[in-house]
């Protein structure tokens, strides 16, 4: 049994967001972090590994420095990393990206008991499309917005947390599950893991590795294969800090009503 986790290196949007004159993100001048929802997917994979002793493989597509992120995940307990990197893949939107990652996962080999985990969405694009698209391209069942995952044989019971409630879904492996932050608290790297992570394997998959896969075609990857065109990118104006009113008694609700009345909202 293997668990594949797809992860993305994203700009740290808690710092300054820089935009190039052509409207694209100036990624080079921004600090990068591991996409927060992806960390929940990694933690879910490692929790299942602790329970079941399976192998966890992290997949990422990005420039060669993204290997550093894979090493950090290995220092947390991920067994192997796959870095998908090629000039031909540059400029891919979610459609092209999922095409490439699906091909990479398929090339690695999906077996009946395997699970693919992804974060719900990345903080730079906020599309929540890549995970579901990978599942579609691999013809696998998918469950999105997982806030709880339990495994019993080849059946996973997943609690989906939605805006207006939750839904419990059973799904057979192999399958794709996208994870949300309510699922868990990601663990830290550990010192022993840090001193082992550079001895673990990172497999590099280039255009040459994947070019013969049926999903890979010059017209479906990279900028050319991307139906999305970015017209402009900009930093939205900062919202003011919210006010927290702790407590659940009448005193708190009165206070809230007072504030809303003062703002002529009620």
């Amino acid at each position: 049994m293997k668990i594949f986790v797809t992860v993305k290196q994203v700009p740290d949007t808690s710092g300054t967001v820089a935009v190039n004159p052509d409207g694209t993100l100036d990624r080079a001048s921004m600090q990068t972090i591991i996409n927060p929802d992806d960390m929940n997917a990694v933690e879910a994979a490692l929790t299942l590994k602790d329970e079941l002793g399976c192998k966890v493989v992290a997949f990422t597509m990005g420039p060669p420095p993204a290997e550093g992120m894979l090493r950090e995940l290995m220092a947390m307990g991920v067994d192997e990393g796959v870095l998908i990197t090629a000039r031909e893949f540059g400029g891919s939107d979610t459609y092209a990206t999922s095409q490439i990652i699906a091909a990479a996962i398929d090339t690695y080999g999906v077996e009946p008991e395997d699970i693919i985990l992804a974060g719900r969405q990345a903080i730079d694009g906020d599309t929540a499309q890549v995970g579901p698209q990978i599942a579609e391209k691999l013809h696998l069942p998918q469950v999105t917005y997982a806030g709880e995952i339990r495994k019993d044989g080849d059946v996973l019971t997943v609690k989906r947390i939605l805006e207006d409630g939750y839904m419990t879904v059973k799904v057979h492996t192999p399958c794709m599950i996208t994870c949300i932050k309510e699922l868990n608290k990601p663990r830290y790297m550990n010192i022993g893991g840090i001193f082992e992570c550079y001895e673990k394997q990172v497999v590099t998959m280039t255009y040459d590795t994947l070019k013969d896969h049926p999903l890979i075609d010059k017209s479906t990857i990279g900028l050319l294969g991307s139906p999305t065109n970015i017209l402009t990118s900009f930093t939205p104006p900062q919202k003011g800090a919210g006010i927290m009113l702790p407590g659940d008694g009448k005193e708190t609700t009165d206070k809230l009503a007072g504030i809303l009345a003062a703002k002529h909202i009620i």
Partner: peptide
């Protein structure tokens, strides 16, 4: 303890994290 911070620069054979003295100082 769970993160290996109580035995940073000692060999794994004794239960250490297999790190180095500078990592201990940094910690």
């Amino acid at each position: 303890a769970k993160l290996g911070m109580m035995g940073i620069y000692f060999p794994k054979q004794y239960g250490g994290a297999g790190g180095d003295v500078l990592s201990y100082a940094i910690t």
